[in-house]
Design a protein around this nucleic acid. Structure first.
Lengths: 135, 135
DNA sequence: TATTGTTATACTCTATAACTATA
DNA sequence: TATAGTTATAGAGTATAACAATA
């Protein structure tokens, strides 16, 4: 491996460490854990079944049961029956949950600040490079 | 916020999600949790006191006590007295711990693969942009 | 008196296995 | 028989508060 590639690896590691910490802190400011905030994010664009949530969050269904249970006890989400499949339950974000979600987004200023340090040209270049990175 | 900035935020989020998952998977392949792997990384370049570890890992000292305790019970690290300060204890990685650490690095191919998709010129450009991002 | 580290405790996150209800 | 979700359980990560030993 080249020195350049090693430098890049280190930069990515450091960047991600900062990013993770900033996200956890943003959630915490709102009184949520990072996984709880992720649930609200996953529900922001519409309700989902429990199983769908497990897929999106990349975790076990039993974990979703507990995450949603804690959020429901705080009335940030609600579970309703699925009319098409009586085994399934749909989870939806409540108005209070939506307020919390917006608060997390507002507190998570980290990416916006960083991106704002780049000129528009640089941002375009970065988008292109990151796109190639993900493929 | 511009569309371009929004695209970048989304790209960073997706990239980081992949990165996190890949790191956790690399650690798991070796039989470690991600935090445990981070302890080994922190000790790879030399021993540290418990308090120093807490600073580096950005967590509470009582958490370090438990993380190190689990690793020590598996003989991946050892605690030795600090000769200069009898309150402190120095934690060092063992040969077995070093093997585990190397195995994690070997399994964590994700960043290297991604970086390898870029030409050297693109890598240089990305390094520069990421540097500006972090400041 | 302040600092280093541990212990006791509590809560969250997470998965596995066993179970219920429905398809 | 297979699938959606829950429950019971267990282990790991995390922090707070109280504590012991040392500075």
């Amino acid at each position: 491996m080249t020195d350049l590639a090693r430098t890049l690896e280190r930069q990515l590691w450091d960047l991600f460490a900062d990013y993770d910490a900033a996200y956890a802190q943003a959630a915490e400011q709102v009184g949520l854990s990072a996984p709880q905030a992720c649930v609200l994010v996953a529900l922001a664009d519409g309700d989902r079944t429990m199983g769908d949530l497990a897929t999106v969050l990349q975790c076990d269904a039993s974990n979703v049961t507990q995450l949603v249970g804690r959020l429901e006890s705080r009335e940030l989400v609600v579970r309703t029956p699925d009319l098409a499949d009586r085994r399934a339950r749909r989870v939806a974000i409540t108005p209070a949950g939506r307020r919390q979600h917006r608060a997390v987004l507002k507190a998570f200023t980290h990416p916006g600040e960083r991106i704002g340090r780049l000129t528009e040209t640089e941002q375009r270049r970065l988008t292109q490079l990151l796109g190639k990175l993900r493929d």
